Amino acid sequence: MTTTMETSVALRRGRDLLDPELFERVSEFCAVEYGHEMCTARNVVDQALAFLKVMGDARAFDMTPSRIVDPGWHSFALHTRAYAAWCQE
């Protein structure tokens, strides 16, 4: 038996929370700083952004990112003005 959905569901990604240019800058920083390939750095930053969104929405300030995701958060935080503006938004 096959189940189909009658309405389409848009998949959301962490990267969709940032301007594409800023996402690329943060990902490039992550790649250089942590020695990742760009595809890996993009995934790390993507998941860090998703983590930050969930943490902010849930007001769950006691959450901790995984060891793999933490460099993405750190890379974004080092883009201080953009990070602060994003957090305020």
Rank of each mutant, 00 (worst) to 15 (best):
K53M: 05
T64D: 02
E24K: 10
L11H: 11
A85L: 09
K53E: 14
A60F: 03
A41K: 08
C39P: 01
G14S: 08
R67G: 01
R15Q: 11
R42W: 09
I68A: 06
P20H: 04
E21S: 11
E21N: 07
F51H: 10
E89A: 13
L49I: 13
V9F: 12
M1Y: 02
A50T: 14
W86E: 01
F61L: 05
T2Q: 02
T64E: 10
C30Y: 09
T3M: 07
T4E: 07
L52H: 03
M5W: 05
D70S: 07
A58R: 15
E21A: 14
D16C: 06
L52V: 06
A58S: 13
Q88C: 03
G14F: 11
D57H: 13
R12K: 12
G14I: 09
M55P: 03
L17D: 02
D57F: 05
F76I: 11
Q47L: 10
Y34F: 15
T4C: 05
V45W: 11
M5K: 09
F51V: 07
L78P: 03
C87T: 13
G35S: 10
R59W: 01
D62E: 12
T64N: 01
R15H: 08
M63K: 06
V44M: 07
W73Q: 05
L78I: 02
W73Y: 01
T2D: 00
E28H: 12
A50I: 04
L52W: 00
V32F: 10
G35Y: 11
Q47K: 15
L52D: 00
A31F: 09
P65I: 00
E33S: 15
A77S: 11
G72L: 03
H79I: 04
P65T: 01
S27R: 03
Y34K: 09
L18P: 01
A82L: 00
E28F: 09
D70H: 06
T2R: 02
Y34W: 14
A60P: 02
D46V: 04
G72W: 04
G14L: 08
A85R: 10
R67I: 00
F23S: 01
F76P: 02
T4H: 05
R67F: 00
V69L: 01
L18E: 06
P71R: 02
C87A: 05
G14Q: 08
A41H: 09
V54D: 13
M5H: 05
T64V: 10
G72Q: 06
E33W: 10
A77N: 04
R81A: 08
R42D: 07
P71K: 01
S66F: 03
R15E: 11
Y34R: 14
S66G: 05
Q47N: 15
E28S: 13
